[in-house]
Design a protein around this nucleic acid. Structure first.
Lengths: 202, 202
DNA sequence: ACCAACCTACTTTCGATTCAGTAGGTTGGT
DNA sequence: ACCAACCTACTGAATCGAAAGTAGGTTGGT
């Protein structure tokens, strides 16, 4: 009964391989980008032939979409609404260390799709705007709740924050020796000071 | 006098064409990146055949280097040491409008060379570190001069500023409708408040 | 005669995708 | 218990298109 491999196991093996390919693709995509990575490299690291890879994903492009979808699903699943904007920014550094392979994928693929004709341009533009809107909305919420001062424009600050967060991802990918924690802490603190309502020492 | 074209003119034409290619390459490179841009596209927009392009630049790679060198030369030439760090950051928005084709080239090519094995990785890493060091050094100068408060780490703040500046380039390339001026002004103002020595209302 | 600035017509290389199989495992009769 | 029809997970050897780069002209000027 040891040589036996029931059908379910076969299917599970296929599924596992598929996951493996997805994981490898995610990492290589982040480090090399879509244009320069080849199916051959992904396949090799995942332990299959290029043709074998295409058994699981029908094209290179479809693989990319699968990776993005998986990433979106992950984001959705790990979204944690606890803490306010500032705390979440500060906690960002931790995420870099916990899931380094996820960091920067957005930034890297975004760059490859800056051109309005690029296939994923719209997807990334929408995503970018959604991110900015989310941040802006959160600032507005804080303002309404009286936690933040109201004399700054949420939309403007949100663009700044998004730029900083995005910039940190690429900086870190380029030079992992930067003082992540300190930078995020420093930025979030300064943000806190900006947003704090004017001298109310009750 | 009209049909005539003395040798000097011929040479001048060649040089002009070379410049034209360089300019076009710069723009297309920024929008599409190195991998996805083709000599054919650059050649077409510059009004030559691919082979004609290679008459001026011996290879695609050499063209890239020429573009980078030209960009470095431009940076060198337009470096203006007037104003302090904060003013220069605020003035950045203006540069986006004045020379839009130059904005983002660093950011885009950087991404394509994140991988330590990438041909230009070192060049970009050095450049990144030099940029951060320059900013840090300027903060230190201000601290020594008593203009800035001394209880923050220049190296940490410099990484933040670099991330923001870099992030703004990509954000703007993706979505040129963002409120550039306002964001730069808001950020530089908040930076000014951070750096200002503690309550000294003389 | 020689050079610069091209051009057209290739050659080469590389990488995605297709194709024809192979090695198992399954399922539903009989 | 056994078989035909079919399925999943692959592999190795083509195919095919795109793009860099080469060869060898052509034209016009010195």
């Amino acid at each position: 009964m040891s040589g036996r491999r029931p059908y379910a196991t076969l299917l599970a093996k296929g599924e596992e391989r598929r996951q493996r390919i997805l994981t490898v693709a995610q990492r290589l995509l982040t480090r090399n980008g879509w244009r320069s990575i080849t199916l051959g490299q992904i396949a090799r690291e995942a332990g299959v032939s290029p043709a074998g890879l295409l058994h699981h994903f029908e094209s290179k492009e479809q693989l990319l979409h699968a990776v993005l979808d998986a990433r979106d699903a992950y984001d959705e699943a790990t979204r944690d609404p606890s803490g306010d904007l500032i705390e979440r920014i500060e906690g960002r550094a931790e995420r870099f260390r916990r899931a380094p392979d996820l960091v920067g994928m957005f930034a890297v693929l975004l760059i490859e799709n800056l051109n309005p004709d690029a296939p994923l341009h719209e997807r990334f533009l929408d995503r970018y705007r959604a991110a900015v809107d989310t941040i802006a909305e959160e600032i507005r919420r804080g303002q309404r709740a009286g936690e933040y001062r109201t004399d700054l424009d949420p939309a403007v600050k949100a663009v700044e924050i998004a730029a900083f967060l995005n910039g940190m991802e690429t900086s870190w990918l380029l030079d992992p020796s930067i003082p992540l924690t300190e930078v995020f802490r420093e930025y979030s603190r300064s943000l806190a000071r900006q947003l704090a309502p004017p001298s109310d020492d009750s």
